[in-house]
């Protein structure tokens, strides 16, 4: 069975992570920001799975499971915050929440 080189998988993961990062930095809509964070988590999970496959151990996959659980919790809280923000400020613009300005 042919195999994918480790380096390539990690590069794909890095590329997807980079896209997620761009998303976080560029979007003002909080929903897009949350989506971008999901992308980044997913990319990190990909790297874990690759490492698990490289060493033929289940540990990498276990890590992905934890990431999954974490992402679920984070999305639940994050989306409730989006709802709350929308209710309070009438917008989903992340830049509108700037009361902490120094």
């Amino acid at each position: 069975m042919a195999a994918v080189p480790m380096t390539h998988v990690l590069m794909v993961a890095a590329a997807i992570f980079g896209l997620g990062l761009v998303g976080v930095l560029v979007r003002r809509n909080i929903i897009f920001v949350l989506m971008s964070i999901e992308v980044m988590l997913n990319a990190a999970g990909l790297a874990f799975v690759a490492a698990g496959a490289r060493w033929q151990q289940a540990d990498g996959q276990v890590m992905f499971l934890f990431i999954l659980a974490m992402a679920a919790a984070e999305v639940a809280v994050g989306l409730t915050l989006v709802l709350q923000i929308h209710r309070r400020f009438g917008t989903v613009d992340a830049d509108a929440m700037s009361r902490l300005r120094g």
Partner: peptide
């Protein structure tokens, strides 16, 4: 810097995963 050994395509089945988890 990472040497790139080929990934063995052998699947890790859910039983193994569950044991470790």
């Amino acid at each position: 810097g990472v040497d790139g050994p080929a990934l063995a395509g052998e699947a890790i089945d859910p039983r193994q995963l569950g044991t470790v988890l």
